[in-house]
């Protein structure tokens, strides 16, 4: 299992990378390599050109700009885990990162790489969907932003053009008092989830749910926002019964069927994990709200 022959390019800056992307046919962008390299070794990917963007330091950052948080596409997953602003502003992503692969893969793996690989069961696309993040994309022609909801085109394929490069994601962090939970079920620690559920809840001063975000991974080809459940929760007082009942709606969602998990099992997990994620998020929201 050795990579096929390809031309290797390592642009030193963003313009260089965009120039190569505009010029080269059948090119693959090499970010952290934790998904592309296995695909190359197994010869599932057969590019003529590999454009290694690891030298482009300007793509690795975590930046607070106004009310928004911006993260460079080449920020390593392990650096994100340790990022002080992220830990403060987005505990959901930090909790999800702890379930992404293993330390050695997080040392190399990047946020942008995971988003572009877009494995249906990967954790970080679920987080991006939960946060209503915006994906920043650049090409020689200029830049554009894509809402995470529009980012997946189809199975494991983002809605970007061959000459475009994902450079960053940005989102508006939820206020400090919100509760969060990222709960997944994987066969072994560090495996891709069979199903993952991300929940964020914000409570009003009266203790009712004033804002909710519920997202599933692993059920379809792209992260699935559960808008129906979110709406159902608004204005309600949180309780185990409420969350269990709301989560039951996920027993009816469309879910994939493959040799590793049936539709029925994915639906069951979707309901079960949604309930657990909501309960945990609610508990944390209650702890965080100043008495």
């Amino acid at each position: 299992m050795k990579p096929p022959p390809f031309h290797y390019h390592d642009p030193q800056d963003l313009d260089g990378a965009l120039d190569l992307l505009a010029r080269l046919e059948n090119a693959k962008v090499l970010a952290g390599g934790q998904s592309l390299m296995p695909m190359l070794n197994m010869r599932f990917a057969l590019p003529d050109h590999v454009i290694d963007i690891n030298a482009i330091e300007s793509l690795a950052f975590v930046r607070e700009s106004g009310s928004r948080l911006e993260i460079g596409a080449m920020t390593r997953q392990h650096d994100l885990e340790r990022s002080a602003p992220l830990r403060r502003l987005c505990p959901l992503m930090v909790e999800a990162l702890g379930q992404v692969g293993h330390r050695a893969t997080r040392n190399r793996g990047t946020l942008g790489g995971s988003l572009c690989h877009l494995d249906p069961a990967a954790e970080l696309p679920v987080v991006a969907a939960a946060l209503d993040a915006t994906i920043q994309v650049k090409s020689k022609q200029g830049g554009r932003s894509i809402a995470m909801a529009d980012f997946p085109a189809f199975y494991m394929t983002p809605a970007i053009e061959p000459e475009e490069l994902v450079t960053a994601i940005e989102f508006e962090p939820w206020p400090a008092g919100h509760g969060h939970a990222f709960i997944e079920f994987a066969r072994r620690h560090g495996d891709f989830a069979i199903v993952a559920a991300a929940a964020m809840l914000e409570l009003s001063p009266e203790g009712t749910i004033s804002r909710a975000s519920v997202t599933l991974g692993g059920v379809g080809t792209a992260p699935l926002r559960c808008h129906g459940i979110e709406e159902q929760l608004l204005g309600q007082h949180g309780s185990a019964a409420l969350f269990r009942e709301a989560a039951e709606a996920n027993r009816g969602i469309d879910a994939m069927d493959d040799v590793h998990a049936s539709t029925l099992y994915r639906q069951h997990l979707a309901a079960e994990l949604t309930g657990r994620a909501l309960a945990t998020a609610f508990e944390r929201a209650q702890e965080r709200v100043p008495a």
Partner: peptide, 22 residues
């Protein structure tokens, strides 16, 4: 393919799969 970890080395002090790096 990056699962077994037998090829792990340190790159600038960080544990890294040497089968997933050129």
């Amino acid at each position: 393919h990056g699962v077994c970890g037998a090829c792990t080395v340190l790159v600038d002090g960080q544990a890294t799969r040497s089968c997933l790096m050129l």
